[in-house]
Computed example of a mutant assay.
Amino acid sequence: MQVTMYSKENCSLCTKAKIVIEELSEDYPIDFQEIDIYKDDQLLEKYQIMIPVIEIDGNEVEYGIIHKETIQEYLNHLMKK
């Protein structure tokens, strides 16, 4: 499963979200990618006040405060397909 996190430097919520994804990667086949929105003007415009944004297989799953349970439920749903 491709998990993309849109983030920026010096973002405490992004750091916490990355920890959540790292913890979940121990139990799920996650291919993780982190993208800095400040390196792409379109992403900056789209996600400016939403970061961090977690996208799984192209679907935005959660943004802002990332809850491990929410991401885990989504991953479980994907595993059942």
Rank of each mutant, 00 (worst) to 15 (best):
M1D: 08
M1E: 02
M1K: 07
M1A: 12
Q2N: 15
Q2A: 00
Q2E: 15
T4C: 05
M5T: 00
M5A: 06
Y6H: 01
S7A: 12
K8H: 13
E9A: 11
E9W: 05
N10R: 13
N10S: 14
C11R: 09
S12C: 04
S12G: 01
S12D: 10
L13P: 02
C14I: 00
C14H: 02
C14V: 00
T15P: 09
T15Y: 12
T15G: 09
K16G: 04
K16S: 14
K16Q: 14
A17V: 05
A17E: 06
A17R: 04
A17I: 04
K18G: 04
I19C: 00
V20N: 02
V20T: 13
I21P: 03
E22D: 12
E22H: 06
E23F: 01
E23S: 11
E23Q: 15
L24I: 09
L24S: 07
L24Y: 11
S25E: 13
E26Q: 15
E26R: 15
E26C: 06
D27L: 11
D27C: 01
D27Y: 10
Y28F: 15
P29T: 06
P29R: 06
P29W: 04
P29N: 10
P29V: 01
I30Q: 09
I30K: 07
I30C: 13
D31G: 01
D31A: 09
D31S: 14
F32T: 07
Q33N: 11
Q33G: 00
E34F: 05
E34Q: 12
E34V: 08
E34Y: 09
I35M: 03
I35R: 06
I35F: 02
D36A: 05
D36W: 02
I37D: 01
I37R: 07
I37Y: 03
Y38W: 12
K39T: 10
K39V: 03
Q42F: 02
L43H: 09
K46S: 08
K46Q: 13
Y47P: 01
Y47F: 15
Q48G: 03
I49H: 09
I49W: 15
M50W: 11
P52C: 03
P52W: 06
V53E: 08
V53K: 05
I54H: 07
E55D: 10
I56F: 07
D57A: 13
D57R: 09
D57Y: 03
G58A: 01
N59H: 12
E60G: 02
V61S: 05
V61H: 02
E62Y: 03
E62M: 09
Y63C: 12
Y63E: 10
I66F: 08
K68N: 09
K68I: 08
K68W: 07
E69S: 12
E69L: 13
Q72M: 05
Q72R: 15
E73I: 11
E73Q: 13
L75A: 02
N76E: 15
H77W: 13
H77E: 14
L78E: 03
L78I: 14
M79P: 00
M79Y: 08
M79T: 00
M79F: 01
M79Q: 14
K80I: 09
K81R: 14
K81Q: 14
